[in-house]
Amino acid sequence: MIPVPRVEPATGTLVLAPATFDALAAFAADPAAARGDHRLEPHLAAVENAGLLSGDSLDPGLGATLEPVVAPVCRLALRHEAHHSRGWVSSVTASLLVPADAELRRLVRLHPSFLPEALAKLAALGPRTRGATPSSLRIPEATFEHLVRTAALDSDAVERARDATPGGGQAPPSVGRVRGSWSVEAEWLDSVGETRGRRVEVLDTEQTLWMLRRTGSEVELSPTSPTAVWRALAGLLPSDGDLRAGPSRRPAAPHA
């Protein structure tokens, strides 16, 4: 049974099943091909039942929401705990597909300048009491994943991880227990079609926020602040210069 998409009266936001969203995105990109795909038909029928699709005509608001999905300048992928959200950004608008509950997603359209706020709210970023700033630390990636999964990245665990990793960095006196972790990745194509991107990954513990950087087999954790995370989120999207960037990392042609 495919849930019929519904529009939330208070916000005008569309709530729908993930597969229905995929069918809608396919329809917005190529209506004739989508109509010819029998796997998509029940989902498109559900959208028709919701009054958002008639023949080949999408509701104008929904059509505008799907514009960046069809022709994105940049794609976003947010992971927060077990939840995954996706985003698409064009030069004038952005759309986010975020969890509404265990089964359904909420499709939100917003001005790109509001993306940092939307991502910050999904990650519960906000003011917090500051303690003493701990040192940065490095721990093996497998150990880190285990500690985060079991929410057991307390000071003892960090000490054990450090002891198990010769030269593995300084452990802080205490990092507190893990409150959560999240990451967001932005990906775009530069002027020659090469994939570029930026990534922000944050661990939230009782003591502080940590910015994460993965370096091969290790994870580097640097203490950070909501302000620094905001700055990273605000700088996530590609600038005009990023989009114009060519194959600068490729070796230059040898001199004749």
Binding site: K121, P127, S225, P226, T227, W230
Partner: peptide, 24 residues
């Protein structure tokens, strides 16, 4: 208004607060 951050600060020996907010 969305409040991103707020922290006590000292500037030139003066007590204060720094706030980081966003609005539309």
């Amino acid at each position: 208004l969305f409040v991103v951050d707020a922290e006590p600060v000292q500037v030139d020996g003066l007590p204060g607060w720094r706030t980081l907010t966003q609005y539309a």
